[in-house]
Simulated scan of single mutants.
Amino acid sequence: MAAATTERYRKEQSIPLRSSSAALYNNLSVLRLPGGRLAALSAVHGPSLSLLSAAADGLGFSHRQLQAKEGGMAVSTSLLTQAAWCVLPARVLLVLTSQRGIQMYESDGSIMVYWHALDVAEHSPARAVFARGIAAAGGRFVCVGTSSGLVLVFDIPPKGTNVTDGAGDLVSADDAGTLCIWSTGEEFTLLSKIPAFGCSCSSVKLWNGIVAAGYGNGQIRLYEAATGLLRAEVNAHARWIYALDVAPQTGKLLSGAEDSFVHVWKLSRNPDTGEVAIEHCHAECVTDTQVCGARFCDPEGNSFAVTGYDLSEIFRYGRA
């Protein structure tokens, strides 16, 4: 770990939610438009998604609730487990996961373009069935994890609803803490498998060939994507890490946890030696809040947003 650098963020005006946020991993999604302009935010609570769209003048947000649906137009009582925008070169989709399946909408949530049901009948009633973990990959794929250990990969057309199965590039993690790193292609190729060490992995991010993983013991570990070798580890939080995010243009890493803290880190790689370093840049205490979502609001990492369990607002922070 390199010497710490100091960056100051200040709290900005928060955004109210119609309902509170559930205690789910990465329970905050941010949609950024080209140029870094913030377009929308969302957070899950029970069977509904609070969707906040930025006003055209950038001075406010419009609010709407998006309910989980079970195919067609029938409203489902199924609980949502995650929501995220998947930004692909040709289109942007809002993807929701639940106890019953996967729903894909146009980016504003207005039209459902695809529904994939989980095969609940194959599992015993005592076993939880759900989908969780959403990522865009390979320029045309959306990948979603399931409680059975499968990663479902969907081939997304430039427009329309003709979504099919495919393959992509991603890092996957499970509750045991095992990481799998896959290459891009028409079929998955397993590049490396990083064994578990007795602790759940709640979040993974990939940047510049570095895998950043957050764990239930509060650690952040950095691995080489190509080989799976451990490059650095930091005792980042006192309790379970619930959220990670990375700013793609700068390599800043954002972490949020049950200990009420949000930290900003800086990842870097020495171009001559290939060595990986992580620096601590900023710490923010969200008082009496179990942080369950944290996302950068711009690709440089100059601002970020935070949600917390049973919190009916989204906190925002910007560079001072």
Rank of each mutant, 00 (worst) to 15 (best):
A3H: 05
T6A: 08
K11C: 07
Q13L: 08
R18Q: 14
A22N: 01
A23S: 15
L24C: 02
Y25L: 05
N26C: 11
S29T: 15
V30L: 11
V30D: 01
L31Q: 02
R37Q: 05
L38P: 06
G46D: 04
S53Q: 13
A55V: 03
A55F: 03
A55M: 10
A56S: 14
G60M: 08
F61D: 05
F61A: 00
S62H: 13
H63I: 00
G71Y: 00
G71E: 09
A74G: 10
S76W: 03
Q82K: 14
W85H: 09
W85Q: 02
C86R: 01
V87W: 06
V87M: 08
P89M: 04
V92R: 07
V92A: 08
L93H: 06
S98A: 10
G101R: 01
G101V: 03
Q103L: 06
M104C: 11
Y105N: 10
I111V: 15
V113I: 14
Y114H: 15
A117F: 03
A117Y: 05
L118Y: 02
L118D: 08
E122Q: 15
S124G: 13
A128F: 12
F130V: 10
R132D: 07
A136H: 10
A136P: 02
A137M: 03
F141C: 11
V142K: 01
V142W: 08
S147L: 06
S147V: 07
G149W: 03
I156Q: 04
T161A: 13
T161V: 14
V163P: 04
L179W: 10
W182L: 13
W182C: 08
T184W: 00
G185T: 06
G185C: 02
E186P: 00
I194N: 13
I194D: 01
S200R: 14
V204F: 09
W207C: 07
I210M: 03
A213F: 04
G214N: 01
G216Q: 09
N217W: 04
Q219K: 15
I220G: 02
Y223A: 09
L229F: 11
V234F: 05
A238T: 02
A238Q: 06
Y242F: 11
A247F: 09
L253K: 07
G256W: 06
S260R: 04
V264H: 04
K266R: 15
L267D: 13
P271F: 05
P271V: 12
G274A: 05
V276G: 09
A277S: 14
A277H: 12
A277N: 09
I278H: 05
C281L: 14
C281M: 11
H282L: 04
C285Q: 10
T287E: 14
P299A: 13
N302I: 03
S303T: 11
A305S: 09
D310K: 12
S312G: 09
E313F: 06
E313D: 08
E313A: 12
I314A: 07
R316S: 10
A320S: 08
